Lab assay of single mutants.
Amino acid sequence: MTVLPKDIPGDSLKVTVGTANGKPGDTVTVPVTFADVAKMKNVGTCNFYLGYDASLLEVVSVDAGPIVKNAAVNFSSSASNGTISFLFLDNTITDELITADGVFANIKFKLKSVTAKTTTPVTFKDGGAFGDGTMSKIASVTKTNGSVTIDP
């Protein structure tokens, strides 16, 4: 049996954390987006972790974005102690894959008090994996961190 590389060099799934701005007490939304989904033969499963400074940001909610089908079954998240974990699994293993680019999740943060303008990162942590529509590992994932700026 011969195994051929399935990824064209330079191609990767792009996962990007967005940015937001606000004043202390505001609730802002930071999107997590996927790009080049079709090039990577869709997404059938993924789990990953984001870190944030809990002294500056309070997670209000984490909701599935419009590219997630049947989110009540296929999407899960949790947030505590400065870490947000995400889990997606197409429970049907074929019919509810992520097949389009767009917003995977929206994180709502309540901004805490600061004395001066502060930009705090929302960054990928170690761990996690992504699988394509056949549940094979997506070897190349380009992750881009985001941030939230609090301006009193």
Score class of each variant (00 low, 15 high):
A71I: 11
T123W: 12
V28K: 13
P9N: 08
D11C: 09
S76A: 14
T142L: 08
F130P: 02
P24D: 08
T29S: 11
L4S: 10
A71Y: 14
V62Q: 07
V32I: 13
T94R: 02
V62L: 09
K14V: 09
F104A: 04
F48L: 07
Y52H: 12
A54C: 08
A38S: 12
F88Y: 04
E58G: 09
P121H: 08
T119V: 02
A79H: 15
T119H: 07
F109V: 05
K6R: 08
N81S: 15
T120E: 13
G25V: 13
K39F: 14
D151F: 15
T142E: 04
K69G: 08
T33H: 10
N21G: 08
V15A: 12
K110T: 03
A79Y: 15
F48S: 06
V141N: 05
S136R: 08
M135Y: 15
K6F: 13
V122Q: 05
A100P: 05
F48R: 01
E58P: 03
A79T: 15
F75H: 10
M135W: 01
N81C: 15
A64S: 11
K112G: 02
S147I: 07
A35L: 09
I150S: 14
D151T: 15
G131C: 03
D7S: 11
V114C: 06
V28R: 10
I84K: 02
F48M: 07
T119C: 13
G22R: 08
S55F: 15
A38L: 13
L87T: 00
V32L: 09
A100Q: 05
I93Q: 02
V60Y: 13
S136T: 03
G146D: 06
G82P: 15
D90E: 03
D7V: 13
L4E: 11
D126Q: 15
N91P: 02
V3C: 13
G18Y: 12
G22N: 14
D26Q: 11
G18C: 14
V122F: 12
D36L: 12
S85V: 03
A139I: 04
T27C: 13
T120N: 09
N42K: 11
T142M: 09
K14S: 13
S140V: 14
T92K: 05
P31G: 11
S85I: 01
V114M: 09
K143I: 01
S113K: 06
S61N: 09
T99N: 06
T45L: 09
V17A: 11
T144I: 07
G133C: 07
D132Y: 04
V43Y: 01
I98P: 01
T45N: 00
A79W: 15
K112D: 02
L97R: 03
G25R: 11
F109L: 05
D7W: 12
G127S: 03
S136D: 01
N70C: 14
T29F: 10
G65W: 09
K41P: 10
G10Q: 10
N47T: 01
G131R: 00
A129M: 00
T144W: 01
N91M: 15
V43D: 04
S113L: 07
N74V: 01
T16P: 12
L56Y: 09
V37Y: 05
M40P: 11
K69D: 13
K14R: 11
K41W: 07
G146S: 04
V141L: 06
A105K: 01
L4A: 07
V122H: 05
L50A: 08
D7P: 11
L50R: 01
T142C: 03
V60A: 10
K112P: 03
P5E: 06
T16A: 13
I107Y: 02
P31A: 11
A116I: 06
S61Q: 14
T83M: 06
E96R: 00
K143S: 02
G65L: 09
V73N: 06
A38K: 11
N106F: 07
L50Y: 06
G82D: 15
V141W: 01
T19Q: 12
I150F: 15
T123S: 07
V103W: 07
V122T: 07
I84A: 00
L97N: 03
I98W: 01
V60F: 09
V73T: 07
V73D: 12
G18A: 12
T19L: 12
N81Y: 15
G44T: 01
